[in-house]
Design a binder for these strands. Structure first.
Length: 205
DNA sequence: GCGACGATTTCG
DNA sequence: GAAATCGTCGCT
């Protein structure tokens, strides 16, 4: 299930979200002078009975783009601090999407480091969904952009396909429920994959 | 209109 | 372990 052309990638994203997620591993995301090879992603099934999805309770202004056609960016702001990015998948109305959790910087390394000055090791530059958006310079302005064309943010098929044998799966990170659903996918052994953290609810003082 | 909380990161 | 920090969404 690896796309080798843009057309195949478009078809993959139009299909079931789990296959789309696995197919996005190894793909290159390029924006604002930096390119990242995806090493970790998570699938969210939208309105199809996935309580962890931002679209689970139906359409709202924030998640509206997820209800549209596949191949567009769903970017959201969280914790008052961070931006994270998804690729919308599946048919219109389903609202499924794949969260881009981590990657390896393969282009524009100097720019990426300038955006995360405190980072010492290159493998930590995009090791986490908000970190990935930071090195790519993504924020509100990326919301809804089409990712498979000639726009400012692009997703392209892998230069070297990722063998199915090296793809690992497990529970999604930080989600409140659905801990039994193994919809987090990563490239086994890759040092740029983020560490697993269980969701911990915050308490008010 | 109000308030609890979040698909996180960083520091102590 | 806990703070930072604010947009979003359901409703106490």
């Amino acid at each position: 299930m690896t796309a080798t052309t843009g057309s195949e990638l478009a078809d993959l994203l139009a299909g079931p979200v789990v296959a789309a997620a696995r197919g996005l591993l190894g793909c290159t995301v390029s924006a604002n002078g930096v390119s990242v090879r995806l090493t970790e992603v998570e699938a969210y099934a939208g309105t199809a009975g996935d309580p962890a999805s931002h679209a689970h309770r139906g359409r709202t202004p924030r998640n509206a783009v997820m209800f549209g056609p596949p191949g567009h960016a769903y970017v959201y702001f969280t914790y008052g601090v961070h931006w994270c990015m998804n690729v919308v998948t599946g048919p219109e109305g389903e609202a499924s999407a794949v969260l881009l959790r981590a990657g390896e910087v393969i282009g524009g390394l100097d720019i990426a480091r300038a955006r995360r000055v405190a980072v010492r090791r290159d493998v930590d530059l995009a090791r986490g969904p908000a970190r990935l958006c930071t090195v790519l310079g993504l924020g509100r302005s990326a919301y809804g952009l089409f990712l498979l064309g000639d726009g400012p943010v692009r997703v392209a098929p892998p230069a070297v396909p990722v063998p199915a044998a090296v793809v690992a799966a497990g529970p999604r990170v930080g989600v409140t429920g659905a801990h039994d659903v193994p919809w987090r996918f990563w490239i086994a052994g890759d040092p740029t994959v983020s560490t697993y953290r269980r969701h911990v609810p915050r308490r008010r003082s």
